[in-house]
Design a protein around this nucleic acid. Structure first.
Length: 251
DNA sequence: ATGTCCCAACTTTTGGGA
């Protein structure tokens, strides 16, 4: 079973790339972030034609998350207490999956940073309270690089968001509910960046960060066969600034 | 590090967000 997360930075702008990617890679479950669509504008018929059921939590201009599945899709839940469209959960193929778009934070002294930490703590609480009936997969754009090896130059980012101790501690709290950062577990020595700024030729200079993460239930860890970033999807015409992260599980 | 992209709208250019 193949589970993928991808921040598409507008599903309207990216629909052609997403459709191509689905056809070429055949994920069973696809978690999308930053659809930037109202629910009425979500192109579910495009995904239906490709064999996917879908659930979308949209709000329009900003945010928006979705789950696509060709292995069943039930039990949809949307959002946290903030009312923004940053979380959607569903049961697909015997897994409880969540597509997450964590607030950016903007800067350490910005109110949005405190909101980001509150949001991560609320997600931790939700995961800590899970009943364990189904193994969970929590994936998406966390807007946090878990460790220094997850950024191209830690010195250049000092004092900025995405790398601060409280943000990293918040991720550790989520892991402590019984999850595994599966890409890092399988590739301890590679950067595995998932995002490169559009500006400044960042992609070609290697100025990236690993901020799109797939956390799987510790109970699922023995079933993980592969976990990798599809860096090629960051290339070409009108790419997202994020690359998809792919995880293959034994059935 | 900032040479871009995407969206909305008091829309054909600007400002906000990432």
């Amino acid at each position: 079973m193949r589970v993928v997360t991808w921040n598409v930075n507008s599903l309207h702008a990216r629909l052609g790339r997403v459709r191509e990617w689905l056809e070429a890679n055949g994920p069973d479950v696809m978690l999308l972030q930053e659809t930037k669509l109202r629910d009425e504008a979500f192109p579910s018929e495009v995904f239906t034609a490709l064999g996917y059921e879908s659930a979308h939590a949209g709000q329009g201009q900003w945010n928006g998350v979705a789950v696509l599945s060709r292995v069943g899709l039930t039990g949809v839940t949307r959002g946290l207490s903030d009312g923004e469209a940053r979380l959607v959960g569903a049961t697909c193929g015997g897994l409880r999956v969540y597509s997450c778009y964590v607030p950016n934070g903007r800067a350490l002294d910005d109110p949005h940073y405190a909101y980001k930490l509150r949001w991560l703590d609320e997600l931790r609480g939700l995961l800590a309270g899970r009943d364990g009936a189904l193994p969970v997969v929590v994936a998406g754009d966390f807007n946090v690089a878990p460790a220094d090896r997850d950024v191209w130059d830690p010195a250049a980012l000092e004092g900025m968001t995405h790398v601060s101790h409280p943000e990293r501690a918040a991720l550790e709290g989520i892991v402590a509910t019984g999850l595994v950062d599966v890409v890092r577990a399988l590739h301890p020595d590679e950067p595995c960046f998932t995002w490169w700024d559009y500006r400044g030729g960042a992609f070609h200079r290697g100025w990236g960060m690993r901020i799109d993460l797939v956390y799987v239930d510790a109970a699922l860890a023995p079933r993980v066969r592969a976990a990798y970033v599809d860096r090629d999807a960051r290339k070409g015409v009108k790419p997202s600034d994020h690359a998809p992260v792919v995880v293959d599980l034994d059935p």
